[in-house]
Amino acid sequence: MFFPESDEVDVSGDATELAGLALVLLTGRGASETTTSTEAGFGGTALASIEVVGADGPGVRIAVDPVRGALVIEGDRAGLAALADDLPGVAETSW
Score class of each variant (00 low, 15 high):
1 M>R: 11
1 M>P: 05
2 F>H: 15
2 F>D: 14
3 F>W: 12
6 S>T: 12
8 E>Y: 09
9 V>Y: 02
9 V>K: 09
10 D>K: 06
11 V>T: 04
11 V>G: 01
12 S>W: 05
17 E>T: 02
18 L>E: 12
18 L>T: 07
19 A>Y: 02
19 A>N: 04
20 G>A: 13
21 L>H: 01
22 A>G: 15
22 A>P: 14
23 L>Y: 06
24 V>R: 12
24 V>H: 07
24 V>T: 15
24 V>A: 15
25 L>N: 06
26 L>N: 14
26 L>E: 15
27 T>A: 14
27 T>L: 11
28 G>K: 09
29 R>I: 01
30 G>I: 10
33 E>W: 03
34 T>E: 06
35 T>N: 07
35 T>W: 05
36 T>A: 15
37 S>M: 02
38 T>Q: 11
40 A>D: 15
41 G>Q: 06
41 G>F: 04
43 G>T: 01
43 G>S: 06
46 A>H: 09
47 L>M: 13
47 L>T: 04
47 L>E: 08
48 A>M: 02
49 S>H: 12
50 I>Q: 02
52 V>E: 02
52 V>D: 02
55 A>N: 03
55 A>S: 14
57 G>L: 07
60 V>N: 10
60 V>P: 11
62 I>M: 14
64 V>F: 04
65 D>Y: 05
67 V>H: 08
67 V>M: 06
68 R>E: 09
71 L>G: 05
72 V>I: 14
72 V>S: 09
73 I>V: 13
76 D>I: 00
78 A>P: 05
79 G>L: 10
79 G>F: 08
79 G>Q: 11
81 A>K: 02
82 A>P: 03
82 A>F: 03
83 L>D: 03
84 A>W: 04
85 D>K: 12
85 D>L: 13
87 L>T: 05
87 L>H: 07
91 A>L: 09
93 T>I: 03
95 W>D: 11
95 W>I: 00
95 W>H: 07
